[in-house]
């Protein structure tokens, strides 16, 4: 079973995150960059499937040089090898363009199962599994809280607000995972030391047979025109209790859809 995990490096969602006013893209240079939290669950699931079924886990990331930190983390958790697509021309690419790069890289790999986080904490578009599935003409199973692989099929419990759907698809397929699916491991000391010896293949757009004109900010299908900081928190609602305090309180909770 060859499993590829799509991994993205993002600015730490626990720290202050900014857009770069020069081109309205995510400011990565000044950020504390970490592996996208949801991707850690995908990595863990890949390792669990590999440990049950055998095979190899390959990490695939598209990102600048600094994304090697995210790759190393994945390798130290136990992934076997990595492919890092790095090319300055990719900077500012939209989701549609990025999916083209990922699909091209996947086509140079052997895969039975592609796993990825259900969303990235930076853009939060949650469209990548669908875009990649479309480009590769493989089924996507999105938003898994449980995954089983048997008899050439991937079966998931697709998490919904009210419960789950049981969905299955033939392999090869792409599955995106929520943080309910497992508890990602932390790297062991041996894992950390082994990571530096694992193969990391670096690929450029040319290696993938892609034209620089197909990617990048200038050719993106969508553009961030403007942005503004979050407005400061307003004054709270002050309710004076005139014998109807409890009712007003419940009304407020109801208006916030808390009750």
């Amino acid at each position: 079973m060859n499993i590829v995990v799509l991994v993205k490096q993002v600015p730490d969602s626990g720290s202050e995150r900014k857009l770069d006013p020069a081109d309205n893209t995510v400011a990565r240079a000044s950020a504390d960059n970490v592996i996208n939290e949801m991707d850690e669950y995908a990595i863990e699931e890949a390792l669990l499937v590999r440990d049950r079924e055998g095979g190899e886990v390959t990490v695939l990331t598209v990102g600048p040089d600094s994304a090697t930190d995210a790759i190393r983390k994945a390798l130290s958790m136990g992934a076997d090898k990595a492919v890092h697509v790095v090319d300055d021309a990719i900077h500012g690419s939209c989701a549609v363009q990025t999916s083209g790069v990922i699909a091209a890289a996947l086509q140079q790999l052997e895969y039975d199962l592609v796993l990825c986080g259900a969303e990235a904490t930076d853009a939060q578009l949650s469209v990548m599994p669908a875009l990649v599935a479309e480009r590769l003409n493989i089924p996507q199973l999105s938003g898994a809280r449980k995954l089983t692989v048997e008899g050439g099929m991937a079966k998931i419990e697709r998490q919904t607000d009210g419960g789950y759907w049981a969905v299955e698809a033939p392999l090869p397929a792409i599955v995106s995972t929520w943080d309910t699916i497992n508890e990602p491991r932390y790297p062991s000391f041996k894992g950390i030391m082994a990571a530096k010896k694992k193969p990391v293949e670096t690929k450029t757009l040319a290696d993938l047979g892609l034209d620089a004109g197909s990617v990048g900010l200038a050719n993106a299908t969508s553009k961030v025109l403007d942005f503004a900081g979050r407005p400061p928190k307003g004054e709270g609602v002050k309710v004076v209790d005139e014998g109807d305090g409890a009712q007003k309180f419940v009304d407020f909770l109801a208006s916030q859809k808390i009750v």
């Binding site: 930190d69 190393r72 983390k73 130290s76 932390y186 790297p187 062991s188 000391f189 894992g191 950390i192 030391m193 990571a195 530096k196």
Partner: peptide, 11 residues
Amino acid sequence: GDELRALRAAV
């Protein structure tokens, strides 16, 4: 270096 930083993070 990378390994010691990774060790700190893992622990």
